[in-house]
Amino acid sequence: MTITVIGAGVAGLVAAVTLAERGAAVTLHERSDRLGENAASWLAGGMLAPFCEAESADPSIVAPGRAAIDWWAARVPEVMRQGTLVLAPRRDAGEVQRYARRTREGLMLDAEGVEALEPDLAGRFSGGLHFATEAHLDPRRALVALAERLRALGGTIHFGSDIMPEAATGDVVLDCRGIAADAPQLRSVRGEMMVLKTRDIRLSRPIRLLHPRMPVYVVPRAEGRFMVGATMIESEASGGPTLRSAVELMNAAYALHPAFAEAEVTEMKAGRRPAFPDNLPRVTRRGRIVSVNGLYRHGFLLSPDCAAKAADLALGSSSREEIAA
């Protein structure tokens, strides 16, 4: 069976690899000239944190999110299983209790427990929550690894190829264009992020800093880099980050540790997350076109599950017309 996938963001790449693994001949078309350009997933935090995300998301994301950790670990390098550490500034310490009430699997830590996990944060927080089974990865390295895997499985990738699903060849066409698909009810939730670089502080796992106005996370990456994200703004605007958002992200990093004040800001970008009204992804089939969209802030967490459902629809092992992931 020949399959054309449109869109090389995380949804498209994971779907393409999943189909290639099931023996399909896959061709992937990406409008941009290189991997990650204009893809929301290139700017992602790369947190595989189903329990933390379920604090504000539908609980149905937990099971596929947990399975996603193994999916990624089997296919891309450096999936770090260090868990997630949730912290709150001292004056908002009650936020940790609230977070614990609304989530599962979090282990309450006192100040010493926080220090044992992250020595560089010693003395800065009176307590926190550890979600030990969660993981994180570097989204860019992961997407590059998936592209290599797809090629190794016999798939081809065409960059700079802007085609519409209706015009595409192949037995089945997978529409993974995200916002560009302009699907009914699909909206964009803008997110702004930055990357900091410093050798003055080391972290082993993503830190979520609970703040009533501006919850943010800091994800450690290789070579002293830290991804700080991300805003959530109901907006279709595609321009660069606003000064307000930049200040908020910087303040959050500084609140986590003053050493970030001396960090180099190596990148500051804004992206648009595709989302449906319930903020859950949808996998649908109409004729020979299967659409995967609405991954919202859960691209890495839910794309393996969406891809499996899309592959079922594409290869005919499911008769359902629509599957809400």
Partner: peptide, 13 residues
Amino acid sequence: RREAAGERAGQKF
């Protein structure tokens, strides 16, 4: 203010 960031940018919401 926040939802716009540009004119009518929050229209779908």
